[in-house]
């Protein structure tokens, strides 16, 4: 099972995402922002970081990278894609997911071990979780507050597309404490927390991130 991990200039957690894929039992395939094909991978992770420095809106430039020209149609066609943090921002900028991520309401970068509830388990990336399972995943960002108009938020809730929600005090001002969402089909997931930092005992708070990566391997086999 081959899972591509895209490196944009300024990607930071690409190495971590590759490691997570390998620890889950998959083969990690490095993809480059300038690539014009996806090398036949079965799924793609857009990792965290500050693509192109994110001096404009986060993800606004990465959206125009050559690799996105092939990734966007593939995702629309059902390729499993997980956007983590900056990757989530890129998915929103690419209009593969609705809404936007804006500056944390407390105006600071924050790195915390965050409690979450997994609310949708029929996506390509969450099948190995139990419905409403509570987990601890690293959250670290400066612009992580999910924002959308009330109509969109109602639609996301109504269609069951809120994948993960923050528990406890809202860490960044996200509307309705949303930590992650999916498209209708469930192959595209955007997640502000970093499951790739929770895959190895002793290096991060536990192993709660691993099911995201095992889920997609199973989803691809089942597809």
């Amino acid at each position: 099972m081959r899972v591509g991990v895209v490196t944009f200039p300024g990607s930071l957690d690409d190495h971590d995402a590759q490691r997570a894929v390998e620890l889950a039992g998959g083969e990690a395939v490095p993809l480059w922002h300038g690539d014009t094909d996806l090398g036949g991978v079965d799924a793609v992770v857009l990792p965290g970081g500050f693509s192109y420095g994110d001096y404009l809106r986060c993800g606004a430039i990465a959206r125009f990278a050559p690799v996105m020209d092939v990734l966007v149609p593939a995702a629309r066609g059902g390729l499993p894609v997980l956007g983590i943090c900056n990757g989530f921002q890129v998915l929103c900028e690419s209009h593969l997911l609705p809404g936007a991520l804006v500056r944390n309401d407390h105006q600071q970068f924050a790195c915390v071990d965050q409690r979450l509830r997994i609310e949708r388990v029929d996506t390509a990336w969450t099948g190995d979780f139990a419905q409403d399972e509570e987990v601890t995943i690293v959250l670290k960002n400066g612009e992580g507050a999910f924002m959308a108009d009330e109509h969109t938020l109602d639609a996301l809730e109504g269609e069951g597309r809120v994948v993960a929600r923050y528990l406890g005090p809202n860490p960044n001002g996200s509307r309705r404490a949303i930590a992650g969402i999916s498209n209708e089909r469930g192959n595209i997931v955007g997640l502000m927390p970093h499951p790739e930092h929770c895959v190895e005992e002793g290096y991060g708070p536990g192993l709660d991130g691993l099911p995201f990566f095992t889920s997609v391997l199973r989803a691809v086999v089942d597809a």
Binding site: D13, R19, F109, Y203, G204
Partner: peptide, 13 residues
């Protein structure tokens, strides 16, 4: 310290 990323690269024990 919470304003600093202590996890990136996944080697922080």
């Amino acid at each position: 310290t919470r304003q600093y990323d202590r996890y990136v690269r996944g080697n922080t024990a």
